[in-house]
């Protein structure tokens, strides 16, 4: 299977759709969408994606909590997570970086930039 599988967890549905369209248009990526944290965790366990894009600020379960759960679960703990944030949510950002040494992207970001970041993270993880 040559396709790299990405899971995006973000409450902004249109954003998710566009990210999917962009990433799939730009290269060998396949994107699954989850529009809340619960659903995201479930999908992550089930599909075991190569990388997760995780929005920090969502209604309901917050990004940091999702991250913590993913990292506690042995099924998902090895999956690299790139966090997305609209504002520099400093406390959770530092927390996440301290805890899990994860990547961090500030919105807005365009398609090519996002793809480049994903590739960079994947390269490092291999």
């Amino acid at each position: 299977m040559g396709l790299t599988r990405i899971l995006i967890i973000d409450d902004e549905e249109n954003f998710c759709k566009l990210v999917k369209m962009n990433l799939e248009l730009l290269g060998d990526l396949s994107v699954t969408i989850a529009t809340n944290g619960k659903m995201g965790i479930k999908l992550a366990k089930k599909t075991k994606p190569d990388l997760i894009l995780l929005d920090m600020l969502m209604p309901g379960m917050k990004g940091l909590e999702v991250l913590e759960r993913l990292k506690k679960d042995e099924n998902t703990m090895a999956i690299p997570v790139v966090m997305l944030s609209a504002i520099g949510d400093e406390p959770s950002k530092t927390r996440a970086m301290e805890l899990y040494d994860e990547e961090y992207i500030t919105k807005p970001i365009d398609g090519p930039q996002l793809k480049a970041k994903i590739e960079e993270v994947l390269r490092r993880f291999k």
Binding site: E12, L18, V19, K107, P108
Partner: peptide
């Protein structure tokens, strides 16, 4: 967030 959508 809307800006992200526009730029995507």
């Amino acid at each position: 967030n809307p800006l992200s959508i526009i730029i995507q």
